[in-house]
Design a protein around this nucleic acid. Sequence first.
DNA 1: CTCTATTTTTGAACATGTTCAACATTGCGA
DNA 2: TCGCAATGTTGAACATGTTCAAAAATAGAG
Lengths: 222, 222
Amino acid sequence: MARPSVKSEATRARILEAALGVFRESGFHAATMREIAAAAGVALGAAYYYFDSKNAIVLAFYQKAQDEMAPGLDRDLASARTLETRLRRVIQRKFETFAPNRALLGALSTNIDPDHPLSPFSKATADIRDRDIDFFERAVRESAVRLPSSVGPYLPRLLWLYQMGLMLFWVYDKSPAQARTALLFDKTLGMILLALKLSELPFLRPFYRPAGELLKALYGEA
Amino acid sequence: MARPSVKSEATRARILEAALGVFRESGFHAATMREIAAAAGVALGAAYYYFDSKNAIVLAFYQKAQDEMAPGLDRDLASARTLETRLRRVIQRKFETFAPNRALLGALSTNIDPDHPLSPFSKATADIRDRDIDFFERAVRESAVRLPSSVGPYLPRLLWLYQMGLMLFWVYDKSPAQARTALLFDKTLGMILLALKLSELPFLRPFYRPAGELLKALYGEA
DNA sequence: CTCTATTTTTGAACATGTTCAACATTGCGA
DNA sequence: TCGCAATGTTGAACATGTTCAAAAATAGAG
């Protein structure tokens, strides 16, 4: 009974690298599994031995990126106290991590269908998603900010959603150096934080109450 | 030089109907062009003579639905004055129109990639989109509501985006009778209208100013 | 080392979206 | 009515994601 060998791992890595290369070269769609296999120096079938599908390769890429990103995120969170700085750093790091493969990220996040394997909302990406949300959980939990009880429990998931939207915008942002995304990020983050502060004003109760009710109904108690 | 004959139109319609049937039966993905052609009683190639691609069939479906929806929307807008009622009716009608093909709509809106033909943001869907936005333009323009100048010009597009999000949520809403979507619709529409009213308070300037700046930068002057 | 079970590798085969060249039908001017 | 150009129809052919049975390499027990 042979255990996963070093050689096997190397072959897998080689295929993954080859795939990323081909993806960068021709884009996710135009890239063919035959090209990828050829670039990795293996037969077509071998690619399928290591990865369930072309989609699965993209998932593996994201998972790897997430692994590499984690220590940096730990540092980010360790060195900042205010919620604004914490969020800014966490999201900024995601941008930086994926910058070299910005286009490829499109293949992963282009699908909204929760039944599609590559959707950010699918079961196949649940692990990835939970790990991602966890960083926002930490960003919120250990920060010195008073949260309205109506949104508090849902804030990490909402922030993840917000950041997901930003990433989507970024992936397809054709402005130089993705300046539009930078602007969107800057302004909206400010607005979000201001909205959280304003939620303490009794005056604005009529606005925040339905939001709280809605979140409770959609996400459940918890 | 023969002009498009009645017979030709009939064949096209037959293929479209057959396709919708197969889509409803097996879902967009599982449906094959060969099935569709067979169901329509034509050869595979004929389907491609009338529709550029499988995707194009979905576009044709949406376009037809839009045509059928237009008179109703006209009536909706003629018979309501307040912005809330106008928006509620317009969006409600879209839900009702697409209800029988809710799942199929997923095939159209699942993709966010602006380069994907079936994306609500693509060039291929620009006509459809513009017509859609136009209804929101009318809903806003002829209504008796004071709009903050900072968002006014962008409101139709923003509302279209909002409604797009609702439709997406709805398509994948697995709750009985899509009750969750109904709740989301009800609460968020109320919040939007309240937000528009609150925008007149000088007190909340710090919140609305960045929003206006952002919209101006992203959408341009206009 | 030898043998066997497991892991890895291979490429043919299959299904399906799409293209295309050939064929059939139709409309119309003469 | 005849001939021809435009329109409509056909199915074979192709590319590509995926499956699979068979072959090759490998590891470990004896």
